[in-house]
Simulated assay, not measured.
Amino acid sequence: MKDYLRRHIWILSKLYENPKGLTYKEFEYEWGRTELNSLKTPLPKRTFADCLRAIEEAFDIQISSDVRNGYRYRIVNREWLEKDNVKDWLLSAFAVNGLLQDSKGLRDRVMYETIPYGNGHLLKILECMKKNQVVNLLYQDFFDDEPCEILLEPYFVRVFHQRWYVIGVMLNAPEGEEPEERTKQGRIRRYALDRVHRIFATEDTFKMPRGFTVDSYFADAFGIIVEPEVLKAERIRIKATDINHRRDYLRKLPIHWSQREVENHSDYSIFEVTVMPTYDFIQHILSMSSEVEVLSPNYVREEVVRWVKEIAKIYGLKTLDF
């Protein structure tokens, strides 16, 4: 079984790293040279074909080989896959893993961004999401003295800043909340899996709202915080300077999918994003220090200024009234 999985991952990694494809002979030659194939076993064409079919089914991809392509096997729906963030992430992760397995010398030269806590609950959450089962969480936030039980309809999961979160409708209202407020509208909450003590599936099930997706839920969010009852999405103008090439970094890694460069000057650019100005967004702006400046709207700019003044106090600096 171990060799079976290794062979599949190896073939997948070769398909992923070679967009133009490889012929069967090239696969066969490379398989004979890889460190994974320590016993130097052959790669029969029938076995190769079985692997391709299994990879197609497991990853929902299309692999073809025709005479016009020189009988090269390649992923034909690659562009579509690159638009599907989850599938593209899974494929690239497996491809990198295959390459690391293929070359032992690389294992001590590659570092992943680890997620230190919460991974153990992720598979259970995903299994409950698959069956639309209500889950019971024993959850303790940082500001709570004791853990509490939460009944949750798990809609989505998301990783953000090295934490897994589960997002869904909380069915039992917090202590002290009035009964008339205990409705599903506005009851969508997020829970970090690193703060979950235990989780189990209940016998109750739920129905996902039609057309409600993780992308639509987070469309106006910078990160994990979504507070439509508190903040609305704003068109925020940001000035990015050439200090440390900040505007080049923003061009390559936008703050948000809505980001547009609306002005380009010799030493700075103006970018616009349409996003909720939540706590995590403000913190991200502050992380770029003097390299960026929020121009508008004014209340967002004032919130950044408030934080700058708080930071100045911590360091014993005098601030101007601005």
Results as ranks from 00 to 15, higher is better:
Glu229Tyr: 12
Gly176Lys: 04
Arg246Phe: 01
Val305Cys: 12
Ala192Cys: 09
Ile188Cys: 06
Ala192Asp: 07
Asp248Lys: 12
Pro228Trp: 10
Ile270Cys: 05
Ile282Glu: 05
Leu250Ala: 07
Glu234Gln: 05
Asp204Arg: 07
Pro209Thr: 05
Arg195Gln: 12
Glu175Trp: 09
Val308Ser: 12
Tyr268Asn: 07
Arg237Trp: 15
His265Pro: 01
Leu295Tyr: 06
Val294Met: 06
Arg190Glu: 09
Val292Gln: 03
Thr241His: 09
Ile255Ala: 03
Ser296Asp: 13
Gln259Trp: 04
Arg187Trp: 12
Tyr249Phe: 11
Glu180Thr: 08
Glu180Met: 02
His245Leu: 03
Arg235Met: 13
Asn298Pro: 08
Asp220Ile: 05
Ser216Arg: 13
Glu261Leu: 03
Arg247Lys: 13
Ser266Arg: 01
Tyr217Asn: 14
Pro179His: 09
Glu261Ile: 03
Ser289Leu: 11
Arg251Ala: 08
Val308Met: 10
His265Gln: 06
Lys239Gln: 08
Leu286His: 06
Ala240Trp: 00
Lys207Asn: 09
Ile243Arg: 04
Thr213Ile: 14
Glu177Trp: 04
Val308Trp: 02
Lys232Ala: 13
Phe222Leu: 00
Val226Asn: 00
Glu181Ala: 15
Val214Ile: 07
Arg182Thr: 03
Val214Asn: 06
Ile243Asn: 05
Val308Asp: 14
Val262Trp: 01
Val196Gly: 00
Val226Gly: 02
Pro297Asn: 13
Ile243Tyr: 01
Glu175Ser: 15
Arg247Asp: 02
Glu272Lys: 00
Gln259Tyr: 08
Glu291Lys: 13
Asp242Ser: 10
Trp257Lys: 08
Glu175Asn: 11
Asp215Arg: 04
Ser266Tyr: 14
Arg190Tyr: 11
Ile243Gly: 00
Ile199Val: 15
Ile270Asp: 10
Arg198Trp: 05
Ser258Pro: 00
Val262Lys: 00
Phe222Lys: 01
Gln283Val: 07
Ile238Glu: 01
Lys207Trp: 08
Leu286Lys: 15
Tyr299Cys: 14
Lys252Tyr: 15
Ala221Ser: 09
Ser289Ala: 09
Asp194Ala: 11
Tyr299Gln: 13
Met288Ile: 02
Arg195Lys: 14
Glu310Pro: 00
Glu203Ala: 08
Glu303Ala: 13
Ala201Arg: 00
Gly211Cys: 08
Thr183Asn: 11
Leu193Pro: 00
Pro174His: 10
Ile238Asn: 01
Glu180Val: 13
Ile188Glu: 02
Leu286Pro: 08
Val226Thr: 06
His256Tyr: 05
Glu203His: 15
Leu253Ile: 15
Phe200Val: 04
Thr183Glu: 10
Arg210Pro: 00
Val308Leu: 10
Ala221Gln: 01
Tyr299Asp: 14
